[in-house]
Amino acid sequence: MEASTYPGNAPDTRDGGRVRALLGRVAPEQLGLSGMLVVACVIISMQSPYFLQGENFANIGTAVAVSGVMAAFTTIVLIGGGLDLSLGAVLVLAGWAMATALDAGYTAGAAIAFALVVGAGCGLVNGLLIVGVGINPFIVTIGTQFAFRGITYAWSGGGAKSTPVDDPTIVALGSDRLLGIPLPVYVLAGMFLLAFCLLRFTRFGSNVYAIGGNLAAARLAGVRVDRTRILVYVLSALSAAVAGVLLIGISGAAIPIAGQGIELTVLAAVILGGTALMGGRGTVVGTLLGVLLLGVINNGLTLLSAPSYWQMIVQGTALLIAVVFDEVRRKRKETR
């Protein structure tokens, strides 16, 4: 083989190379995160015997499903060097769209499809403003956050109005179980698997990493940068629409004021999971760990009947700690 003349060029196929190639290297931060997860579980289970029961795990799964679904795709957004702060607003707008369709007598399937179309439309608006017009994603998605939620309020005839949803399929999606596991957990797992495969196995994923790492280089290399970036925002908004459907299934009502600030919970989980705020680096596996860690801590606080503001304090602090870690990592890389 020619390559033997150039031993340095041998592809990495030593033992374990395959497995590692499939899962990606286990980053130290992922080990650290897993450790923190275990520690949190041990501490909470010592305080509350209820924690380790199967029923409680089902609760945690359902509780993290809504933000988790979005976290999976926010990972893609951040890796691509973007930001989407309109998730909570897209969630309620798509959810209200579904409730309206159900009200008008459409089937659950058609209503869900309508929610997804509305979600994709929101994502397209974000994408076109950010990529097409070239405005900073932070500004654009704060703007659309207000716009989309405002549209939801207008459509529902005022923000305080919510409407019960009793469609059996939707309610089942939020509360039924299969093999003892709540259906939202399956949706969560499916969305994570989808995001994982997109990033690891497809040209799209490869290009997202390249764009987040060095946008100019990706463009010079001939990557269809604009198309890829718009698609990233469409996928992000679609995940928010899925979350909106789930939330209605779980709560049994479409609530226009729901999901406020949920994008920060999502961001905290993603950055905690080791994804760089500045793009180019990150993994879906890390995000999953971040989601679980925040879910377990919130669950622990509930079990210990801590007042609910503690959850806000913990989440805000977690976001800040994650950002500090991210910054430290970045600085260390620069000075290498």
Binding site: Y209, G212, N214, A217
Partner: peptide, 8 residues
């Protein structure tokens, strides 16, 4: 100015 994707 090198046109590479540094994290890939």
């Amino acid at each position: 100015d090198l046109a590479l994707a540094p994290n890939r």
